[in-house]
């Protein structure tokens, strides 16, 4: 035993344990539970039936009370394990409950009603994954519609973001022209104008353009992001001008230089911006909430928040819908997290 303990608690370089090592591991392991625990709990809960969700204390895994059909009774009945007076245990189905007395029948012999005190019975539990939580929203709510709206907004906004911002970054990094500084300053200034400051006039402009209650009204105001221009411009500045001069010598037009030389060489930065943009647009909430007032136009985020704010929250559906909403972001986290973290550490922008 002590050998194993020694092996487990050995330290690099044979140093002993310092109190900071203990703090480190408590912090990290605690962090693991606090950061992932809530999301894992949500995913686990999303497989529970409404009855299991209402239980307190809750179970970790989705259990439900087993049901049996008894001849002569239409509804399936809950199955209980009952301790009889002789100390024998039998499985009985509950027909009805009156106060503390439960009227039960033996499923194999439904004619005879046995009266049992409820303290003597324990439900027979079985594990069951409530997949109808996931299939239900497709029929109960316009879930497919919301999913499609979110995907449409995310994909289109990201494509436009990449094109528009890379063009601007190209102009700002590879051309000398009057007003370049002013353009840079203008873009910089927009960092200071967050949505919460301009939402009233922005709403009126979007309405005046006929984009109220339209997915384009959600997409267009977000596509010219200063962060995007910055990331791309910084990157394009490192592309040697000689390449462009050589292309001009070969009679390439400026447009060809942009999409045949600059864009392919900027691919890594474009990929980072694309990942950012997908996460931003997928997660957007306040602006879609303002622009979209018709149900069939809601994005997932808006739909989720509206349904979760209703008086009778159907948590079993909300939980499953939340899990589906999380999936793309979790995929990004698993496969592309590296790009995002280097992007943030490099630019300090989100």
């Amino acid at each position: 035993m002590s050998r194993i303990a020694q092996f487990l608690f050995r330290r690099k370089g044979g140093r002993g344990w310092h109190w900071t090592d203990i703090v480190t591991w408590v912090w990290l392991v605690g962090g693991l539970f606090i950061m992932f625990g809530p999301a894992v709990w949500l995913v686990g809960s999303s497989f529970k039936s409404p009855a299991a969700l209402a239980e307190f204390p809750p179970t970790i895994l989705p259990y439900i009370t087993q049901k049996v059909t008894v001849s002569g009774i239409d509804k399936p009945l809950d199955l209980y394990e009952v301790t009889l007076e002789g100390g024998k245990t039998v499985k009985l189905a509950e027909v009805r409950r009156v106060g503390v007395v439960s009227q039960m029948v033996d499923p194999s012999n439904p004619g005879e009603v046995i009266k049992v005190n409820i303290s003597q019975r324990k439900p027979v539990r079985e594990m069951s994954f409530a997949s109808e939580n996931y299939t239900g929203p497709f029929t109960h709510f316009d879930f497919v519609r919301y999913l499609w709206n979110s995907v449409f907004v995310t994909v289109v906004a990201t494509l436009i973001t990449l094109i528009v911002n890379s063009m601007a970054a190209f102009a700002l990094s590879k051309y000398e022209f009057r007003g370049r500084t002013i353009a840079m300053l203008l873009i910089l200034a927009t960092l200071m104008v967050p949505l919460s400051v301009i939402m009233v006039p922005l709403y009126s402009i979007v309405s005046a353009l006929g984009l109220f209650n339209s997915l384009w009204g959600v997409i267009l105001p977000t596509v010219a992001t200063p962060t995007g221009v910055f990331i791309l411009r910084q990157y394009m500045l490192t592309i040697p001008d000689e390449l462009i001069d050589a292309a001009r010598m070969d009679k390439a037009s400026e447009w060809q230089i942009y999409w045949r030389i600059i864009l392919p060489l900027t691919a890594p930065a474009l990929a980072v911006l694309a990942i950012f943009s997908v996460v931003w647009r997928w997660n957007d909430f306040l602006w879609p909430l303002i622009v979209l007032s018709r149900k069939e136009l809601y994005t997932l985020q808006v739909g989720l928040s509206i349904y979760s704010g209703e008086l009778n929250v159907q948590w079993h559906f909300i939980l499953a819908m939340t899990v589906v909403t999380m999936i793309p972001v979790v995929l990004v986290f698993i496969f592309l997290q590296r790009f995002i973290t280097t992007g943030i550490a490099g630019t300090g922008l989100k």
């Binding site: 051309y175 927009t190 104008v193 006039p201 979007v206 105001p221 596509v223």
Partner: peptide
Amino acid sequence: GGMATFFLLPNMLIFGIFVLLPFFIN
């Protein structure tokens, strides 16, 4: 120079309409 403006234009238009204009009419 005209090409530079052309490349910058879409971005500036969107900035202008959806950020600067609302900022001022606010």
